[in-house]
Computed example of a mutant assay.
Amino acid sequence: MPVNGYGANVEGLAQFSRALAQIGADGLRDEVKAANYDVADKLAEAAKEKATGLSRQQRAAALSLRATRTQNYAAVRLGSRRVPYALGAEFGAVKRTRSGRIARGFRPWRGNQFSGWAGGPGYFLHPAIREKGPELINEYMTHIDRIMSEAFPQ
């Protein structure tokens, strides 16, 4: 399972979902969807909790975090029309004013120096991914293993 700075890709998940549909295991397919959403929701909640000790702007941006789902995947979304500054709150800003201060009250830029689980970008979402990611991946894979053993008993 390759993991990058923005999410995890479970190799074979789409084929697995199709196999469940072919054998008529709609209940199990729904369980896979629920497992996907559950991980995204737990990650969003962990990031909101991580933002509690940060600035008012970052806490407000973190409140815009939400888990979403489609037929094939779940995701964590950040920002909205009411919170257009959410990415600035998460990653900071590079642009400085004439006085040398960071523009518009954003913290310093922490956007593209990803160096694995130990360090990297972001102030609340990405640190939550680094902190909770391995635990959530293990939990997710345990759930998928259980579903697979029910769908394809040996």
Rank of each mutant, 00 (worst) to 15 (best):
P2Y: 13
N4A: 12
G7C: 07
G7D: 03
G7F: 12
A8F: 15
L20E: 01
A21R: 11
A25H: 14
V32G: 00
K33E: 08
A34G: 10
A35M: 07
D38T: 13
L43V: 11
A44T: 03
A47E: 00
E49S: 14
A51E: 00
T52P: 05
G53P: 08
S55T: 15
Q58E: 10
R69T: 10
T70C: 08
V76S: 00
R82P: 06
P84D: 00
Y85C: 02
Y85M: 03
E90F: 05
E90S: 02
E90W: 05
V94I: 15
G100A: 03
F106G: 00
R107S: 11
W109E: 00
G111I: 04
Q113T: 14
Q113P: 06
G116L: 08
P121H: 03
P121R: 03
G122Y: 02
F124K: 02
F124M: 02
F124R: 01
H126F: 14
P127W: 07
R130Y: 09
R130P: 03
E131H: 13
E131Q: 13
G133L: 02
G133S: 04
L136P: 01
L136D: 01
I137R: 12
I137L: 12
Y140T: 00
I144A: 01
S149H: 11
S149L: 09
S149T: 12
E150Q: 15
A151E: 01
A151C: 04
P153M: 01
Q154E: 13
